[in-house]
Design a protein around this nucleic acid. Structure first.
Lengths: 222, 222
DNA sequence: CAGGTTTTCGCCTAACGGTCGAAAACGTGG
DNA sequence: CCACGTTTTCGACCGTTAGGCGAAAACCTG
C-alpha cells in the first residue's frame, strides 16, 4: 500500500515524500504508505495511511496504479505493494509533518526501494488521463482562468500547451463551463481573465477514438 | 492472483472458467488463479497458475487489471486478489482440463465470489485498449483478412464495426500491413480477400488526443 | 491618450472518422 | 460463355476536430 500523491506546486509537478529515519534506506525519500488492515479494502487503507501525512479531505482523486511485487524490491521478507495515484488541487497547501516534503518529479532526491519507478508510473498515468478524461478537475481549484489551467496542464504534462486549444477542446467535450466571473488583471495590465469551472466533480472519460463506435453512442451533445 | 483469460470463439468473446468441485461456492464457475510464491512476482505467478489450465505460450498478452480487496469478497479469512487480463489469439484452440470451459462474457453461468465483476473489468479494459492501442494483434492470428478482423473487433467490442473504417484507421496509424497473399473465396463466390498482419507484436499505443501535444510528438509518419 | 500587456475570439487549414456507392474479382447456373 | 449474385476493395464526399495565427478586446502605466 503506497501512494504517489501529486500536486502542481510553484509551476512544477511535485510528489509528496517523507525522509526515512531508520534502516533500511535511512535518509532516503520514500512514498507514504503502510500495511493493510483486516477490515478495510486497499482504497480505505491507503486513505488511512495518508491521513497520517495530510488531511485526506484535501485529496481530490485517488486511484489504483499497479501492483509492484518484485521479490527483491525491498530487502528482507517479500512485500507486495499496491501503488496508488493521489491528487491534490493546486490551491491547497496541505500541512505536512516535519519529515515530509514535496519534490519536483523531474528532480527527485535519492529515493528508497522502487519508489522512483512508482513515481514514474504515476506521472505517466496522470499525463495520459489528462488527455482523455476530465481529470484536470482534480488538479485545479474550483474556479480558474484559462491561463491558470494552461500552466497546470503544462506543469503536469511537462510541455507547453496552447491556451486557445485547451479551452476549445475542453469546452467542446462539455467539460468546461464559464462561471461568469472575471479576475482583476495584474500590475502589468492586460484584459481581465474570465473564470471557468469543470462542470462536474466526477470522473468522466471522453472516448479516445470513436473509431468504430455505433453512431448512437457518440461522445457528446451539441 | 486471478486471471480473466479472454478469446474470441465462435463469433463471441468468451472467458475461461473452471467449475468449483468443493465448497465454498461448489459448482459455481471461477476464474483460474492461486497464491503467490516467495520467489516470483505477480506476473510470473499468474503465468504459473495459468499453466495448470492452458499452454501459457498460447497467451498472446497478459497485463494487470486491478486489485480486488473487499474484506467480504470471499468467505473466511480475507484474500486480496490481483486480477489480470489474459488474451488468446482466435486461431488457437487451447486444450483445457475437464473442469474448465469457455463461456461467452455476456452469458456467464453462476460465478463464484466477485469473479463476475472481474470479468466485467476485463471486458471493459479490452474494449478500451482496442480503440487506442494495437492490442488487436493479441486477438488475431498472424495473418488475417479485413473481414476476419472486423468480426474479431465486433465480437470483442460488442457492436458492429465498419470494415472500411477499420482498415483505414489501423493503416493510417501504421499498425496494419498487407502480406501480399490472398485467400480463396468461399463456395458462394466473391472477390478474394487480401491478407494483412499487424506490423509488430509489441504493444503500441496511439495517443488518444493530441490535444496539447508538441507538434514534434505527433502520432504517426508521412 | 499613447504604448504595452494579457486575454479572448474568429478564421483558416489539415487530418480524421462515418458513410455510401461504384468497381473489382470471384463463383454458379443457365 | 455469359448473365447474375456475392464478397471484397477502393475512392469520394461530408461533418467534426484540432493546431495555428492574428486581430480585436480590455485592462494597466506613464
Amino acid at each position: 500500500m503506497l501512494a504517489a500523491v501529486l500536486q502542481v506546486r510553484a509551476g512544477s509537478l511535485q510528489v509528496m515524500l517523507w525522509e526515512r529515519a531508520r534502516e533500511p534506506h535511512a535518509h532516503r525519500w520514500s512514498l507514504p504508505g503502510g500495511g493493510l488492515g483486516d477490515d478495510e479494502d486497499v482504497e480505505a487503507s491507503i486513505r488511512r495511511q495518508l491521513a497520517e501525512k495530510v488531511d485526506v479531505r484535501q485529496l481530490s482523486h485517488v486511484e489504483q496504479l499497479a501492483v509492484f511485487s518484485n521479490p527483491a524490491r525491498v530487502p528482507g521478507p517479500r512485500v507486495v505493494a499496491t501503488a496508488f495515484l493521489g491528487l491534490v488541487p493546486s490551491h491547497i497547501d496541505p500541512l505536512v509533518p516535519s519529515d515530509t516534503a514535496w519534490h519536483p518529479v523531474d528532480a527527485l532526491p535519492a529515493t528508497a526501494f522502487d519508489h522512483e519507478a512508482i513515481c514514474r508510473r504515476a506521472r505517466s498515468r496522470l499525463a495520459s488521463k489528462l488527455s482523455y478524461t476530465n481529470l484536470g478537475f482534480a488538479l485545479a481549484p474550483p474556479e480558474f482562468t484559462i491561463s491558470a489551467l494552461r500552466s497546470l496542464y503544462s506543469a503536469a504534462l511537462g510541455y507547453k500547451v496552447s491556451a486557445t486549444n485547451l479551452q476549445r477542446v475542453l469546452s467542446r467535450r462539455g467539460l468546461l463551463e464559464p462561471t461568469g466571473g472575471t479576475v482583476q488583471p495584474g500590475p502589468s495590465g492586460g484584459r481581465p481573465a474570465a473564470l471557468f469551472r469543470f462542470v462536474s466533480g466526477e470522473m468522466r472519460i471522453t472516448d479516445p477514438f470513436a473509431v468504430l463506435r455505433p453512431p448512437s453512442a457518440r461522445s457528446l451533445g451539441p
